[in-house]
């Protein structure tokens, strides 16, 4: 099985918000894939953390670079 890297750019998205872009990428991903989301919305960090906690996927890295939040997620929880 090959693992994919999916990159999502949600910078500037206030409504409906970057979490919707993460959810969309997650639908199309399979276990083992890496999703990287870029966002500027200040609510993004707590949302990603809550999402990871509830869905059981893995947060590989969360960083901030020059006003952009970058979340790197490994998909592991799909049934």
């Amino acid at each position: 099985m090959t693992e994919n890297k999916i990159r999502v750019d949600a910078r500037g998205m206030a409504c409906p918000g970057p979490i919707t872009e993460l959810v969309k990428a997650y639908r199309n991903a399979k276990n083992g894939d890496i999703i990287e989301v870029l966002a500027t919305d200040p609510g993004f960090k707590p949302d990603v953390e809550a999402w990871i906690k509830r869905t059981g996927n893995q947060l590989v890295e969360f960083k901030e670079e020059g006003g952009t939040y970058i979340a790197v997620i490994k998909v592991t929880a799909k049934k």
Partner: peptide
Amino acid sequence: PYPRPYPAEPM
């Protein structure tokens, strides 16, 4: 699929 009923927190 979101953490809350409306995806953007303030709304």
